[in-house]
Design a protein around this nucleic acid. Structure first.
Lengths: 218, 218
DNA sequence: CATGACTGGAGAGTGGCAGTATCCATACTA
DNA sequence: TAGTATGGATACTGCCACTCTCCAGTCATG
């Protein structure tokens, strides 16, 4: 398949495909001549994934490339892929991330939860920054308030990994991990907002209904 | 307080404050003359909130304005504020949102959960879009798979609303709702990623540890 | 009243980024 | 051999979050 067919089948304009090739989002096709290359189904699938990450999730091109290169390089180690820089957070160039204010709170939180994480997971910085911002805004929100949220996040992670169980192929598994981790993020936040609206209405007395389904937690 | 002091106390450049005033993010000060206005502590607090929403959460200026105007207009009705267009999703101009593909799945999901929501909550569209994207990518992910996620989201919402219980002042309450809803979003996603990494390591056999804390769910 | 610093407001300019358009030498295709 | 398509490079567009510049009006001081 050449670039025009790739464009036709994906709905992505020719020029945009070239742009993604240039940016390293899409691996180059198998060159058959100086100005000719052959693309296959994996390119098509990759291209659709790129569009989803960029337009649905709203990732930047750079963040998308990092995610995808992680998928390609660590196909087998899904648990390595999952902790990646998926938030498109800007980095504070060459500064020790450990010196970031609020990071000790994150360490305390992680220790309390008993989580074993790689030291340089960018997610740590995100949490530190959030806590610091909340503090600067004058709230009394501390890392302890995050503990119950973290336990719910852990159950969410259990659901996530359960979704991966029935996939054997390494590449497919890694791609599915990305889909479930990254693409589901806006949906999960939307679910939270809807649940807030419902729960708020319930507490307001307007609507009868159980506050929390299932056992425990409440 | 005049604009320079506002700038000094918030750390936001003079020109940027003017920009926010022009864009309607920051309400104008009390005019004392044709070229003179007086700002107070609420402006300072609002300004810090704006910076947090834009730089920490990554909202666009327009999305931030919508959130803030909602806070101002519905100070008392927190449950109205919570369901808002916080995701900075682009809208498909003048199209009936009900005609969006996948929306019937969202209706089924909401019905299954027993949630009572306003009809035009933008969160519905986000979920529909996500489901549609996952379908177009060839996964077998249906709305039923979202049910357990939604139940966890509901517990998260319970935590969120609990955080608001001890606040009486309407404006403070609405602002706190925004903080917890919007500003916490990146942190919650980060918690999920960290939990995924931990859970994946546990399942991989590398680390001993309980899969899920607390009762139920597992 | 004169002078200079400051103010609010408006328009233009900047830099970054995603995507698009144009060229060009080359390569298939009729 | 003429016409179309390709890959690659470069330049351009449009959007957006600022940021700069200018201006008349205002205030503080002498």
């Amino acid at each position: 398949m050449r670039i025009s067919e790739l464009s036709r089948r994906s709905g992505v304009p020719n020029a945009t495909i070239k742009f993604y090739l240039r940016k390293g989002l899409l691996p180059p096709g198998r060159a058959t001549a100086a100005t000719q290359a052959e693309y296959d189904e994996t390119h098509l699938r990759r291209l659709r994934l790129i569009r989803a990450l960029i337009s649905v999730r709203g990732l930047t091109v750079n963040a998308t490339r990092e995610v995808l290169s992680a998928v390609s390089e660590h196909e087998a180690d899904v648990h390595q892929v999952l902790g990646l820089a998926l938030g498109a957070k800007r980095v504070d160039q060459d500064g020790e991330p450990d010196t970031q204010p609020g990071m000790s709170d994150v360490d305390a939180l992680v220790a309390r939860l008993g989580w074993q994480l790689s030291e340089h997971t960018p997610a740590r910085g995100v949490i530190a920054e959030t806590l610091e911002t909340l503090r600067s805004l004058g709230t009394d929100f501390s890392w302890r308030a995050l503990v119950p949220y973290a336990e719910l996040a852990q159950r969410t992670a259990v659901l996530d990994l359960d979704q991966l169980k029935d996939t054997d192929d390494a590449l497919e598994r890694a791609e599915r991990a990305v889909l479930l981790t990254v693409l589901l993020e806006p949906a999960l936040l939307a679910l939270r907002r809807m649940a807030q609206e419902h729960e708020s209405a319930v507490r307001h007395g307007a609507i009868p209904g159980p506050s929390v389904p299932g056992p425990g937690g409440g």
